[in-house]
Amino acid sequence: MATGGRRGAAAAPLLVAVAALLLGAAGHLYPGEVCPGMDIRNNLTRLHELENCSVIEGHLQILLMFKTRPEDFRDLSFPKLIMITDYLLLFRVYGLESLKDLFPNLTVIRGSRLFFNYALVIFEMVHLKELGLYNLMNITRGSVRIEKNNELCYLATIDWSRILDSVEDNYIVLNKDDNEECGDICPGTAKGKTNCPATVINGQFVERCWTHSHCQKVCPTICKSHGCTAEGLCCHSECLGNCSQPDDPTKCVACRNFYLDGRCVETCPPPYYHFQDWRCVNFSFCQDLHHKCKNSRRQGCHQYVIHNNKCIPECPSGYTMNSSNLLCTPCLGPCPKVCHLLEGEKTIDSVTSAQELRGCTVINGSLIINIRGGNNLAAELEANLGLIEEISGYLKIRRSYALVSLSFFRKLRLIRGETLEIGNYSFYALDNQNLRQLWDWSKHNLTITQGKLFFHYNPKLCLSEIHKMEEVSGTKGRQERNDIALKTNGDQASCENELLKFSYIRTSFDKI
Rank of each mutant, 00 (worst) to 15 (best):
Q303P: 13
I84L: 02
T250F: 09
D75I: 11
F275L: 06
G58F: 00
R110H: 04
C219V: 04
E147M: 10
K176A: 05
E57Y: 08
V34S: 04
L155E: 09
E147T: 14
D247W: 05
C301R: 06
A156D: 01
F73L: 07
C243V: 00
M137A: 07
K217V: 11
P70A: 08
C335T: 07
D248M: 03
C53Y: 03
V108K: 02
H290F: 14
Q299W: 03
K310L: 08
L88A: 01
L131N: 02
V167D: 03
T85V: 05
R41G: 06
R208F: 15
I146R: 01
D39P: 01
D159F: 00
V34M: 14
S225V: 06
D177I: 15
R297D: 15
N105H: 03
R263F: 13
L60Q: 00
T229Y: 03
Y30A: 15
E97G: 11
K193L: 06
F115I: 15
H226T: 13
C223R: 02
G333N: 05
I82E: 15
G188P: 09
T107K: 14
H307G: 02
N309K: 06
L63A: 07
D39K: 08
K148S: 15
I146K: 00
L289F: 08
Q287T: 12
R263I: 12
P104I: 01
R263T: 11
F285A: 07
N135M: 15
L102K: 00
Y273A: 05
D248H: 03
S77E: 08
H226N: 08
L326Y: 11
E97M: 04
R298C: 15
T199V: 11
P271N: 04
N195K: 10
P269E: 07
D248W: 03
C264Y: 00
H302T: 13
T320V: 09
C182Q: 13
L332A: 15
E168G: 05
G203D: 10
C234N: 02
I56Q: 00
P330V: 09
Y273I: 03
P270A: 13
S317H: 04
Q299D: 08
E97R: 13
A230E: 13
P220Q: 08
K217M: 12
H214L: 09
Y118H: 09
L233M: 06
L88R: 01
G241A: 11
G333V: 03
N138Y: 14
F275M: 04
I185G: 14
C239W: 00
L63R: 08
C252M: 03
G192I: 01
N105A: 05
D159C: 05
L152K: 01
N117L: 06
L50M: 11
E151C: 06
V218Q: 13
H214G: 14
T45V: 12
G58K: 00
L90F: 07
C293I: 07
S284W: 11
S284H: 03
L106A: 00
G227I: 05
G111N: 00
E168T: 11
A119N: 01
I84F: 00
P197C: 06
N257Q: 10
K100E: 15
V167L: 04
L64Q: 04
L327R: 13
L164Q: 04
L44D: 10
Y272W: 10
H307T: 02
C209H: 04
P36S: 05
E97S: 07
R92V: 02
N308P: 02
C53N: 00
W210T: 05
G37I: 03
E130I: 08
D277F: 04
Y94P: 14
G183A: 08
Q287G: 15
G333E: 03
E180K: 09
D277I: 04
P336V: 14
E180T: 07
P270Y: 10
T107I: 15
L50S: 01
P270H: 09
L332G: 15
T157S: 08
Y319F: 13
E57K: 02
Q245S: 08
I109K: 00
P269A: 11
Y154N: 08
H236M: 03
N195E: 14
K100V: 08
G142L: 02
A119G: 07
C335V: 04
S296W: 01
P36T: 09
C153A: 04
L120M: 09
L76H: 08
Y154P: 14
G37R: 03
E314M: 05
R110Y: 03
S317E: 11
K310M: 05
L44F: 11
G142V: 01
P187T: 11
F66N: 01
L29F: 01
T329L: 09
G262Q: 07
G227Y: 12
V265E: 04
Q303R: 12
F116P: 01
C239S: 00
M38W: 02
V281S: 01
K193S: 05
D159R: 06
N135T: 10
Y273S: 05
G95I: 03
L96R: 01
I62E: 00
E71L: 05
S323H: 15
V93K: 00
P271Q: 09
C186P: 14
E33G: 12
N309V: 03
T229R: 06
F66Y: 13
N309Y: 09
L102G: 02
G262D: 01
G241C: 05
N170T: 07
H302G: 13
R162I: 06
